[in-house]
């Protein structure tokens, strides 16, 4: 098991959260607690870079929905970048692949 590590950086499009490790029942609250503290201006995009996420369960999916709600409340956009295959499969089953903007890699999403 790998612990969850979240690194925040600013890109041209807005804040990028780089998520590495396991976004599960035990760790997802870490992301849930961080999200409300992320400052967003209207028109910005909050990007979750999942390229180094090793695992994601339904608690992780809930955290992504919370991120979307936070972004929309600030009239900002949200995008998922570099989604691992196993998580993309789950996003398709639950219909979220049509709700989130999904980018193949973190660089494209962040527009840098």
């Amino acid at each position: 098991m790998s612990p969850l590590k979240i690194t925040t950086r600013d890109a041209a499009t807005g804040p990028v959260l780089e998520i590495s490790g396991e976004l599960d029942y035990a760790n997802a609250p870490q992301l849930r607690d961080l999200i409300p503290t992320i400052g967003l201006r209207p028109g910005q995009r909050l990007t979750l870079d999942l390229g180094r996420m090793a695992f994601c369960d339904s608690s992780g999916i809930t955290a992504m929905i919370a991120a979307r709600n936070h972004a929309h409340a600030a009239r900002a956009d949200v995008a998922l970048a570099a989604v691992p295959a196993h998580t993309l499969r789950v996003l398709r089953i639950v219909g979220l692949d049509r709700i989130f903007t999904i980018h193949p890699d973190g660089e494209t999403a962040a527009g840098s």
Binding site: I65, R92, V94, G95, L96, R98, I99
Partner: peptide
């Protein structure tokens, strides 16, 4: 049933 969304989020 592809594209059916989670119930309650939107």
């Amino acid at each position: 049933t592809p594209g059916g969304l989670l119930v309650g989020i939107l």
